[in-house]
């Protein structure tokens, strides 16, 4: 299934886009999403170990399953305040 991933801050700058589309298996997990993102966008490599994934506005660990209707985002550590 095709998943659109919103990108922010340095992740967006490195990828050169606000949203990238990756293809993961049905019932794919956050871990499979991370792998697909690495393949689609090698430019993200320096950030890869540091990236957070959020599903429907909640932080999601690697074992969380992604559904087609989910809103998915990926970003480096936050620095508000």
């Amino acid at each position: 299934m095709k998943i659109a991933v919103k990108l922010f801050a340095r992740a967006r700058d490195l990828a050169g886009t606000e949203s990238m589309t990756v293809d993961i298996p049905a019932e794919g997990t956050v871990a499979s999403l991370r792998g697909a993102m690495r393949e689609v966008c090698p430019a993200l490599a320096p950030l890869t170990p540091h990236l957070f994934v959020a599903i429907n506005a909640q932080y999601a660990g690697d074992t969380v399953t992604i559904r087609p209707s989910d809103e998915v985002a990926c970003f480096p550590p936050v620095s508000g305040g």
């Binding site: 340095r10 950030l47 540091h50 480096p76 550590p77 508000g80």
Partner: peptide
Amino acid sequence: VPIWKKENWSDGTTEWVHPGV
């Protein structure tokens, strides 16, 4: 909270602040 700041340094360069990266 997913908010990020980008430094605009006096030497003209910019840099996203991502703690630990």
